[in-house]
Computed example of a mutant assay.
Amino acid sequence: MPRATGPLAEALARRAVLLDGGLSNQLADQGCDLSGGMWTGRVLAERPGQVEAAHTAYVRAGAEVLITASYQVGHDPDLLERSVRVAGAAARAAAREVWVAASVGPYGALLADGSEYRGRYGLTEAELAAFHRPRIGALLAAGPDVLALETVPDVLEARALLRVLAGTGARAWLTYTVAGGRTRAGQPLAEAFALAAAAPEVIAVGVNCCDPADVLPALAAAASVTAKPLVAYPNDGSVWDAATGSWNAPAAPAPWPVEDWRAAGARLVGGCCRIGPDRIAALGPRLA
């Protein structure tokens, strides 16, 4: 896959970069069936053109980074490669620089029971590393610009992911899902973010798929232990109900103090679940 004209890390040293939004909500708006354990991966397997169309919608909204549909795919090397190829096609069609970030979802995502919002799966670091190693290998072989180690709920899983990346020369960002000033597994955020500070493979660190109100305290915690660029792509404040397979929306969505996020060090900014192209288009001018 042809790369963008310059490494994402170099861009982050100069300016803020706009991420895309939620892939699942955009695919649902396009009429796709996301039922079953594979979620967006089902659409990738059955209707890859719809995934490319969703990526293209975000390119048109101004997104500079497209996150692949590999979050819940599992270990299928063909589908993992396809996720990068499909996003790459949308990136190449843009008349400007667009990077492709290969999504590495947490172990809990494949359980399809909301475990990514709890962590503490009962597995060892070595077992989690063994789970992630072939997935990361297949994604790297497809040639993305960066890996998105995202929605990580637990410091233990972050250690496992970084263990797999160590010495590979790959580049990645690491984002936790957080609540109430801690990881979803309950660990202090400074401890969680310190792992990224010590990992040369990590080019940026922060949070995703969390309430917007949790973003600024998390960024402050990250900035206290690392000078690396920070990442923020929350959802709309909704809470996932695994039993019903639906989001419980907040009565009063929290505003996005993007300027405060930027002042705290956020350089990669976008949206996660339930944030569509319209919200990304409105976000872009606030990063200028």
Rank of each mutant, 00 (worst) to 15 (best):
G88F: 03
R92K: 14
D154S: 15
G108I: 01
T177V: 07
V100D: 08
S70Q: 04
G122E: 10
R171C: 03
A54Q: 04
G119K: 11
G108D: 06
A57E: 03
E97L: 04
V100H: 07
T151E: 03
D145R: 14
L66R: 09
R171W: 08
Q72V: 06
Y176T: 09
D113T: 03
E157I: 03
F131I: 02
A158M: 08
P134L: 05
G105D: 12
G108A: 06
R92I: 00
A89F: 05
L149N: 12
R82C: 07
V100K: 08
V100I: 10
A158V: 05
L147T: 07
L66H: 04
A142V: 07
V104C: 14
Y71W: 03
G114S: 08
E81Y: 06
V84I: 04
L139F: 09
E81Q: 12
V73M: 05
E81W: 08
A126T: 11
I67A: 12
L80Y: 09
E150Q: 01
A160W: 03
L79Y: 14
T68K: 06
D78V: 03
V98R: 07
Y117N: 05
A87I: 01
S83M: 01
R135I: 00
H132T: 06
G122Q: 09
V86A: 13
V59G: 15
E127D: 15
T175H: 10
P134E: 09
G137V: 00
A109H: 03
A142I: 05
V152E: 02
L80W: 07
T177R: 01
L110E: 11
G74K: 10
A87N: 10
A61G: 07
W99Y: 15
V73Y: 00
R159G: 08
L128I: 05
A148F: 11
S70W: 02
P153A: 05
A54S: 15
P144G: 13
D154C: 04
S115V: 01
V152S: 08
E64G: 11
A93Q: 10
L80S: 08
A94R: 06
E150F: 10
A126K: 10
W99S: 07
P77W: 05
R120M: 00
I67N: 12
A170D: 13
E97V: 07
H75N: 12
G181I: 11
A101T: 08
R163C: 02
L147R: 08
A69Q: 01
G180H: 14
Y121C: 01
E116I: 04
V104Y: 13
A129V: 06
R182N: 12
Y58A: 09
A87L: 00
A101S: 14
R96D: 10
Y121R: 11
G62F: 03
V155F: 15
A109N: 09
W173K: 01
E150M: 02
R133C: 09
A95D: 15
Y176A: 11
V104Q: 10
I136S: 09
A69K: 05
A87R: 04
A141G: 09
A102R: 05
A179F: 13
A63W: 08
T56C: 00
A179V: 09
